[in-house]
């Protein structure tokens, strides 16, 4: 029994370490600002604001696990939000809006995947180009104007993405559901094995009969659809779509994935780590401000926590503990 516990601890030390860091950070926040952090309200707020970055980070977890990178996701988020906004404004149908957004995310992911696997562009270059292209595309398509969707709040299906379920904000319900589903895919499904295998050594994976191209394209499609879904859910929250949508999430999403424990080198990815890190990263700024650190301290502390967390992961890996 002891051996099983030891083995479990050894295998999951990265996730356990992350939970410990998160709890420690929150304890510090509770000590420094008890009025805010002993109230359930702040946690409910995090549950309604964190999932937007969380969904992007879930997609990035898969992309990094397969040994690639995607820089276009903030623009894809705007594509998803725009497709939803235009479709809803034209039809007043949430279902059609979501289908349009998912189609937009699918097409962007497919193009990214084709550019990387068929055209042979490095993913950092292909997705960098797509990031600019898509931002220009949404700005041109809407003549640079925002889309006001005030009527969305009165729609009967509005609570599906912006209401609550047993007092839990629906944003977190969706984030949790998709995390469990994608965790199952990554750890328990053949596709997940292929992703990790390709990420670890694509040449060997190819020799083993795994279709590297198809797997990579599928991962970029997952990323695209998750970004589009995040954009759609963000539109539900804001009841407005801006051409600048997603730009504030770029660095936060990357920080979430790296703090969660997913490596840039490929072949490794942790959906659980990403889920926990999303809430850790998402709560940092509010905690630092509530602690009363005035003025210009926020980014300094924010950066420090990220560097310390990732240093711990890196050393755990180097020592072969995870």
């Amino acid at each position: 029994m002891n051996n099983k516990i030891k083995e479990f601890t050894r295998r999951h030390s990265l996730e356990i370490g992350l939970i410990v860091i998160t709890i420690l950070v929150w304890i510090v926040f509770i000590i420094t600002s008890p009025r805010t952090f002993l109230s359930p309200k702040i946690y409910r707020t995090f549950m309604s604001t964190v999932p937007f970055v969380g969904l992007l980070a879930l997609g990035l977890t898969f992309v990094l696990a397969i040994g690639e990178i995607d820089l276009s996701f903030p623009s894809t988020m705007a594509v998803g939000g725009m497709c939803f906004g235009l479709a809803f404004a034209a039809t007043n149908s949430i279902v059609l809006g979501i289908l349009a957004a998912m189609a937009g995310g699918f097409v962007v992911g497919l193009i990214n995947g084709i550019l990387v696997t068929k055209v042979g562009m490095p993913s950092i270059v292909a997705t960098l180009g797509m990031m600019f292209f898509l931002r220009g595309f949404v700005t041109l398509s809407t003549d640079g104007s925002a889309i006001s969707l005030r009527a969305l709040g009165d729609h009967m299906l509005y609570p599906v993405f912006s209401g609550t379920f047993l007092t839990i904000p629906m944003q977190t319900v969706w984030f949790l559901f998709l995390s469990v589903f994608l965790g199952f895919i990554l750890y328990r499904h053949q596709f997940g094995d292929n992703v990790l295998f390709v990420g670890d050594n694509s040449h060997t994976a190819d020799l083993m009969g795994i279709s590297v191209s198809k797997t990579k394209i599928a991962v970029f499609i997952i990323m695209g659809m998750l970004a589009a879904l995040s954009g759609t859910m963000d539109v539900f929250r804001l009841r407005t779509w801006w051409p600048t949508q997603g730009q504030g999430y770029f660095m936060t999403a990357f920080a979430t994935v790296f703090v969660g424990g997913t490596s840039m080198k490929g072949g490794q990815g942790t959906v659980f780590g990403t889920f926990v890190a999303a809430f850790l990263i998402g709560s940092l700024e509010a905690g630092i401000v509530a602690a009363g650190l005035a003025g210009f301290w926020t980014q300094l502390i924010y950066g420090l926590i990220i560097v310390v967390s990732v240093s711990i992961h890196t050393n755990l890996r180097r020592l072969g503990i995870t």
């Binding site: 600002s33 409910r44 707020t45 600048t244 730009q247 999430y249 401000v289 005035a294």
Partner: peptide, 24 residues
Amino acid sequence: VRYRWSDWSPERMVTQFQEAVAAN
């Protein structure tokens, strides 16, 4: 006084406003 820096991002402003409300 506690400051929230938003990088001029409307989305960040909404998120930070929600967090500010939660801090009561």
